[in-house]
Write a protein that binds this DNA or RNA. Structure first.
Lengths: 233, 233
DNA sequence: TGTAAAATGTGATATTTATCACACGAAGAT
DNA sequence: ATCTTCGTGTGATAAATATCACATTTTACA
């Protein structure tokens, strides 16, 4: 729950895990960040940000996987996206009312940098090229969310599950064999299904020889068929 | 379909319909926009942008209502949002691959300005404060889309219809009595329902005395009850 | 290592919502 | 004015998916 603050000062100008946006910054600006930021780590399962909390620091994800989610009234959870390294968390919230609209939890061990929001905003105002890169990132996010939205609202459960599997294979792991970083319930929450329905579809894919499934370990055996199901199913 | 190009030069610096972002620009920058932009009008029903087309100009909406939508394989339509005046259309697409990801059609007569995308991008890079305002706008949009997404994926049809009615009353018209700017089919497409289901819910609300409905003319008679249905229904 | 708790798979059933079919009225076209 | 098309409401039915109940497996941890 509570981040382990690293005792090491993070020398941003030498950091090998810079974002595309930060790569544009001048040495002076990077030093400005360094003086107002802090490295930290989270353990798998830790909640990093609670929806509804105020933002004083922006979180930059240096390594690990994070789920972005919200809980609704009846305790059910909707996972918005899986965030992987080299990403700023919660940018849209920052530029609105400064209240975090989503929660974030670590799916694996995670390392991050906290950056003071005032410094971050100042950099955007001072350096249009930095601002442009941040815009690119927020826009990409927005289009991705839209894609997920369309996927959930227009496809049937087989198409949705296929889509999610392809998403993990191509975007997150870049492998045809991978380990899902969460439970079946969370998998279902990501695509807006009940746990039972998600399980049933996975079992069906296994029985049909499309996937090999052993617990959280997944291999895609028939990628073409899976892609076809994602499109038309 | 084809915009009527106005013969009048638009003097941006005197324009009373500037966006929050443009209000920040210097006189010199506004003149730069003027030399690379063009005013135009569309008639109700005109398609302004086709999804998939390339973006050479960004469209700024000066007056009127526009639907942002996509068509899927089986010709069904999902309306993403209703856009009202003082808004740039399709910003997230601009910062990605420059392909328009959504289509836009005029729901009322509409006046717009076309602004050259290169000029627009240059202004963002040159003027961080302008960039900041654009970021605020893209972020607001992203959070709104998210809200719509949650609404569609977690609520039942009564809650969704209630939500949509409240949205028009509060955000679009700021009145308790208003005229829906589209057909029942489009209303259904906005909230991801079949036309028949949307109709049935509206009729139920009418029978229960929550709304008064006469064709497209709608009055909210019991706002509290409607809000409760939106939350828990 | 043993035990409790959590996660998973699966059948039966219920609920929600879409689809189909059709009647009716209003708006446009000739 | 009449014809045709489009939009709308409504009942009957079908399809998709959630919920419930419970057995089984895996994981956590004392």
């Amino acid at each position: 729950m509570i981040p382990d603050f690293s005792p090491v000062l993070n020398a941003c100008r030498d950091c090998s895990e810079k974002s595309c946006a930060a790569a544009i910054l001048h040495v002076k600006e990077l030093d400005q960040i360094r003086e107002n930021s802090r490295a930290a780590t989270f353990r798998k399962g830790d909640i990093m940000v609670h929806a509804g909390s105020m933002t004083s620091h922006i979180i930059y994800l240096k390594s690990g996987l994070v789920k972005e989610y919200v809980k609704s009234a009846n305790d059910s959870e909707q996972i918005l996206q899986i965030v992987s390294k080299f990403t700023y968390l919660g940018l849209p919230s920052l530029f609105g009312d400064r209240v975090n609209h989503y929660s974030y939890a670590a799916l694996t061990d995670v390392t991050v940098c906290y950056i003071d929001v005032n410094i971050f905003n100042q950099l955007i105002r001072d350096n249009g090229n930095f601002a442009y890169e941040i815009l690119v990132s927020v826009s990409r996010d927005s289009l991705n969310n839209f894609h997920r939205f369309m996927n959930q609202s227009q496809k049937k459960i087989y198409g949705r599950v296929a889509d999610a599997i392809i998403y993990f294979s191509r975007i997150i792991f870049e492998l045809e064999t991978f380990e899902l970083p969460f439970t079946r319930q969370e998998f279902a929450d990501l695509i807006g299904l009940s746990r039972e329905s998600a399980t049933r579809v996975l079992t069906k894919f296994k029985d049909d020889g499309i996937l090999s499934i052993d617990g959280r370990q997944i291999s895609i055996l028939k990628p073409d068929l899976l892609a076809r199901i994602s499109k038309h199913g």
